[in-house]
Design a protein around this nucleic acid. Structure first.
Ligand SMILES: [Mn+2]
Ligand SMILES: [Mn+2]
Ligand SMILES: [Zn+2]
Ligand SMILES: [Zn+2]
Lengths: 153, 153
DNA sequence: TTTCTATTTAGAATTATTCCAAGTATTGAC
DNA sequence: GTCAATACTTGGAATAATTCTAAATAGAAA
């Protein structure tokens, strides 16, 4: 479904960064590839740990900087579901996020066909650039990792 | 539009808390009234500062506890729009949140008529309890407080 | 090359949230 | 009502998450 990534990210990212006046750097590319290669929803700290595996000299500050740059140029989404750390999502297809209030995991969920996005009344006072839809609840059935935060009822 | 509140919150809140097995306390009532009396979207810290004005002995830990209790029993919504502190909203009418990426302020925006919520495909794997819709962009026109984070273009 | 600016880095600093242990209040059983 | 059990509150310490800073480096422009 998603176009396969690792080789394509260079040129693509380069162009997207340039459009926003941001420079293409090896750190930003690396952070992007970390996000593409494992499409769960890691926090900045998790991205940092993964990034260090093949680029041990990268710093936490640079991970934050890179994540901000990737979000700003529109190749990554920042996901805020609770009081914990922000998470990052490299799936730019239109989708919503389901957050299990028991285990804390975040899953992509597809929006059903039209209307894909809610019609909102912003009556000229706001210029909307992005819509984030977060669903809260609990995973049903067999969620193996569930119960981290507290066991399901 | 919203039923006027300060006198009504006691019994109402008492019942909602009881439904979840939570106790009614003066602190929780007070935090709730703080949220009802100024319907912007304060952070826990802002709630703490407001709450202290008429109840100086209240603690930060209790504010967090109370906010959690109010959210859990469904009389307050927790709003997470970015990496900053969570915000709290006592407007339980169906609405979405617009967050200005320049000034950081959060505004209630109404969803247009049906379908009010997006149809999502959760195919039996998730039990959805709540849907949070956050719009990002920038306020247009005359937003006096805008430019705190950085000036509009 | 020289200059200018953006980016990276380590670590300090700050902010946000949670944890803890002791005291207090509330509930339910008797 | 008394008593025990449990929930809640409190201040402060601890932790987690994010931002800041100042110096070094790298990239782009002149
Ligand atoms: Mn996602
Ligand atoms: Mn609101
Ligand atoms: Zn779960
Ligand atoms: Zn604004």
């Amino acid at each position: 479904m998603a176009t396969d990534h690792l080789p394509v990210s260079g040129d693509f990212l380069n162009q997207r960064l340039a459009e926003k006046g941001l420079r293409f750097t090896s750190q930003r590319q690396h952070v992007y590839e970390v996000l593409l290669s494992q499409r769960d929803h890691p926090s900045a700290d998790e991205v940092f740990m993964r990034a260090k595996q093949s680029k041990p000299e990268i710093s936490m500050a640079t991970v934050y900087n890179s994540l901000d740059a990737l979000v700003k140029c529109g190749v990554v989404r920042q996901v805020n579901v609770d009081r914990g750390a922000s998470m990052y999502c490299s799936n730019m297809n239109e989708h919503a996020h389901f957050c299990c209030d028991d285990c804390g995991k975040v899953f992509d969920v597809n929006l059903k066909d039209s209307p894909r996005v809610p019609e909102v009344d912003v009556s000229g006072k706001f210029e909307v650039r992005q819509i984030d839809i977060a669903l809260h609840g609990r995973c049903t059935g067999t969620c193996e990792d569930c119960g981290r935060r507290e066991a399901h009822a």
